[in-house]
Simulated scan of single mutants.
Amino acid sequence: MLNNDQQDRLLLALFATAEAMGQQLTQGAALLMVDDLRDYDEPVLTAALRNCRMEGGRLTVSAILKHAQAADGRPGKDEAWGIAMAAFDERETVVLTDEIRAAMTAASAIFEARDKVGARMAFMSAYERLVTLARGEAKAVNWSVSLGQDPQGRAVAIETAVHLKLMPPERAALYLEDMAIAPTAITQDGLAIAGLLSGDVRPASPGISHKLEAVRAEIKKGKAAAEKARRKKAQADRVDTYLRKRKLRAALAELKSERGAA
C-alpha cells in the first residue's frame, strides 16, 4: 500500500497525466482515484499512467487498473490452460500460479473424464474469476512448483522458471535442496542441469551437454536483451521524469489557484 508521501505524488501525477491527455480533474475526483489505487505499488502505477498517456482516451480508474493489473505477471487464460495441461500429466514438473492450481481443481474431474473441451471451459471460467478476485484485492502473483515423477525433469523445470524470472534463484535453490538433489542423489547429467542455477559448470553426457549449451546461449541472449531493455527504459524514465516534473509544477499552480478561488 502507498504511504502518505507516495499518495501525494500519485495525486500530482494524476493531475499532470489528465492535463497531458487533454482532461481536467477536480480535486475530489483525484482524491477518490488515489483511494482506489493506493493498494498498488508506486512503480506499477507510474508505468500504468505512462501507458495511459501513450494510449490516449480518457483517464479513468478502470484505464489505469487495466495497465496496472496487466503488469502483475499472471499469464493470460490461454497460456494458463497450457500450463495446466502440462500439470495434469503426473510425470511433468510444472511451475504454476495459485490461480492456475485452484482452477485445475475445478476442472480436474471433467479432464479425468476425457472431456478436454469441457475441462478447458471449466478451467478458464474458474481462472478468470480467480484472477479478477486476486487483482481486485491487489494480491501479488505467487508461483510455486508442482513436482512430477521424473527427477531430472524437476531440475529442468525449476531452472526454466528462474530463467523466465518466475522464481528467484534463492527460492529455486531451496526447492532443489528439498528434493535432495545432491551429488549422491542424482546422476552426472542431473548435476550438470542443477549447475545452471548456481553457475557451477559440470560435465554432462554428449546428448545433454548439447542441450545445456543451447540453454546457456539462450540465457546469455536473454541477459543481453534484458540489459538493452533496461537501458532503454532508463532513458525513457529520465525523459518522462523531466516532462512529469514540468507538468506537476503546472498542476500544483492550478490546484493552488482553485483553492484560492474557493
Rank of each mutant, 00 (worst) to 15 (best):
L11N: 06
Q69R: 15
Y127G: 01
A16C: 06
A102W: 02
N51E: 08
R114D: 00
S257D: 10
W81N: 14
N4I: 15
L45T: 01
E218D: 15
M54G: 07
V95H: 08
M1E: 02
G190T: 05
E42Y: 07
I64M: 13
A70D: 15
R74D: 15
R91Q: 08
A80T: 08
L14T: 10
T46M: 06
R101N: 07
M104P: 05
R244M: 12
A113S: 05
K220T: 14
Q24P: 00
L174G: 03
A126I: 08
G136W: 03
L147P: 00
L196K: 13
A157K: 11
D39C: 03
D5L: 11
V131N: 02
K223A: 08
V201T: 13
A214T: 14
G222H: 07
S125V: 12
A20W: 04
S209E: 14
R216I: 07
G57Y: 15
R154S: 00
E19S: 08
A106H: 10
T105G: 02
K211W: 12
P168G: 05
I181D: 10
Y127M: 03
E213I: 04
R246V: 06
A16T: 09
D115I: 02
R246K: 06
D200M: 11
K233A: 13
L243A: 09
A84H: 12
A103W: 01
G190A: 06
G260T: 07
E159F: 04
L166H: 14
E128M: 05
A155T: 02
A122V: 01
R120A: 07
A30E: 02
M33P: 02
Q23Y: 00
A84D: 09
M54L: 14
K228C: 05
R50C: 04
A234Q: 09
L49N: 03
R216H: 12
D89R: 06
L243E: 02
P151T: 02
D39G: 11
L252K: 13
Q24D: 00
M33I: 01
K228Q: 10
A192R: 15
A182C: 08
L248E: 12
A253Q: 04
S198H: 07
A47V: 02
T241K: 14
T46R: 13
A225L: 13
Q188I: 11
D78A: 15
A113N: 05
D35F: 03
D150C: 03
D8H: 15
A102S: 11
M167Q: 01
F111I: 00
R101Y: 06
A226Q: 14
I110D: 00
R216K: 15
